[in-house]
Design a protein around this nucleic acid. Structure first.
Lengths: 337, 337
DNA sequence: CTGAATCACTGAACCGGGTAAGTTGGCAGA
DNA sequence: TCTGCCAACTTACCCGGTTCAGTGATTCAG
């Protein structure tokens, strides 16, 4: 019942442990005949190298870490993280790396987890999301020399690899589209203001609105949750100079906003046009289906994992832009009445 | 820059490696004074035991595995898995166990992953979800003697721990509630029919409907996705003898069903009442908010993790029922017009 | 035919903790 | 003063791969 080791294989093949190691790892040092024989025996007895022993003798842990720093109730509903995770998996699985997950409550706790993981040599690198301005995690990662890739930005990450999508371009496209439909009063419900990509979006939104001569544009900060999305929407729709279109920073808030509009007896898209950020199945699930800024989150994740594996291999990696975000028009946008 | 080992601590404390090991693990064999001194040094230099070395010397890997066997596009939107995961974390984190995740395409691939993980000693146990009748994974887990806990059921899992919620009771409550409101034609859109808990629900649904003398009750099988939820709903609403209430096996299909009803000009709850299974934020996000069968998914996950840790510790565990499912009435149910 | 190079492999050290078995020193009791 | 005993350590080996320095056999050039 004991799980087989290379010593068992060595005994059965009549060679030394060393030879078995060379044979199984494709290293030179054994003849082709012996290699084949050893591989056959390994397969026959269902051998899998003990990852602990392997990691201990200087090699990799063959695992990467991901922390999720949002309350469970948001994590659950947001398609973003799951999309990202399955993207990671596609890339990591191919290289037989494992993904280790931890839910944390704060960036400080996240740093603790990084320190522990790295100290324990449990992982070879980490994927960092929800990057902020002057993010406290960056200097720690540099101090630890822990291979990492940062998702979101672009921002200051020093020597750490970074992958980002062109959020500024995306929001510009959305505003231009709404203006082309005839909208003048465009509002925005943003995600957490601290996050770098929120700032990028806010800046780009303000700029394009100014350059198109729109006034009364407003960004209401929220936190990606449905509750905040509802609250922000109510605030916008109650006011005197009601916007005719709202851009939301994620799909959950957009759906919540749609519900508020319906509840207030406003027709979508007749009285209010809605644009969601990140096109998840959620957007096509509701009625009317939501116009969204789409990007392939899975591919984004796969690309991030790829960069991380490069960083782990010591290859210098830089600042990578992910695939373009594009606007997918659906039933929630139309010319204002 | 090298990460510290117990040998470093031993040198600084002027004792042997063995003494350090005893001190840090709370074992007898060192005086309190020495123990304190050693712990202080460990803290000072930021020592973390190398998990590989620890795992190698007979101890635990201190990690558990979870595979997700659904396409990414469903995983993303379904709050269920993320809820479960954060529940696991709450329990695992407290015992400083890590969670290793893998997305797989089929039960066969899932088995491969279990074999590999266990062979590599990467994990100490696994959490198995989406259990089917005569599930192919059960005999493999028993053969490998891999500690496991099965979520869903109740069903035949032999010696493997199991945790389940009273789905039969829940659906009975939902049907009784709808009948009390005055509904006679109640339909149901189910999840994947192979899954054990789907079968439990279907059986209970048929039984309670029969015992209440309802005819024309029908269960349309679907697969938890929004698309299938829409399709099934359309099929039900197009038919001659339209149901006045539909119970959905998850929240995503319920939301999709709501959109279909709105699209067809039916008022909810006036023309159609809707009940969702699993009360996620999604249910209160839409308009009208959905009546749902609520359960604390996180607590469910925490309980499962707890049972698994017991199983890993060799404690015999059995068949545990999770906290009750209860009906949360909201705006999507009312007496039929 | 000899010396050098190459090949196929062995043996042993090593990674960093865990732990059984052995070794002190100090103190109590006779 | 001697024995016995215990706490407080030390020593040494284990876990299971990886890797490096040999070693004997064979090949090959000169």
């Amino acid at each position: 019942m004991k799980r087989p080791t290379i010593a068992d294989i060595a005994r059965r093949a009549g060679v030394s442990k060393g030879a078995v190691s060379y044979a199984l790892n494709g290293q030179p040092g054994v003849s082709e005949a012996t290699r084949k024989r050893i591989i056959a025996i390994a397969q026959e007895i269902g051998f899998n190298a003990n990852s602990a022993a392997r990691a201990l003798s200087g090699a990799r842990a063959r695992a990467v870490g991901l922390t999720l720093c949002r309350p469970a109730r948001i994590l659950g509903i947001e398609p973003w993280f799951m999309g990202l995770i399955s993207g990671f998996e596609a890339e990591l699985g191919a290289q037989s790396y494992a993904l280790t997950l931890q839910v944390v409550a704060s960036p400080e706790q996240e740093i603790e987890v990084y320190r522990r993981w790295w100290g324990e040599r449990r992982i070879d690198g980490v994927i960092v999301t929800d990057i902020r301005e002057n993010d406290v995690r960056i200097p720690v990662l540099q101090e630890l020399q822990l291979p990492a890739v940062v998702i979101g930005g672009p921002g200051e990450t020093g020597s750490i690899a970074q992958i980002w999508s062109d959020d500024a371009g995306a929001i510009t496209e959305a505003v231009r589209y709404l203006v082309a439909l005839g909208h003048h009063r465009i509002a925005r419900v943003s995600g957490v203001p601290d996050l770098l990509h929120t700032q990028v979006r806010t800046k780009a939104f303000d700029e394009i609105c100014a350059s198109l001569g729109l006034d009364n544009t407003i960004t209401v900060p929220a936190d990606y949750t449905g509750e905040e999305g509802s609250r922000a929407t109510r605030r916008l729709l109650i006011g005197g100079d009601r916007p005719s279109a709202i851009i939301y920073d994620n799909d959950v808030m957009a759906v919540a906003g749609l519900a508020v509009a319906q509840e207030m007896g406003l027709s979508v898209p007749g009285d209010l046009s809605i644009v969601a950020w990140d096109d998840s199945p959620l957007c096509s699930l509701v009625h009317p289906p939501l116009t969204a800024l789409s990007r392939d989150i899975s591919a984004y994740g796969a690309q991030a994992a790829h960069e991380l594996l490069n960083a782990i291999d010591g290859k210098r990696v830089g600042n990578v832009e992910a695939a373009r975000v594009h606007l997918t028009p659906r039933g929630s946008t139309a010319p204002p009445r």
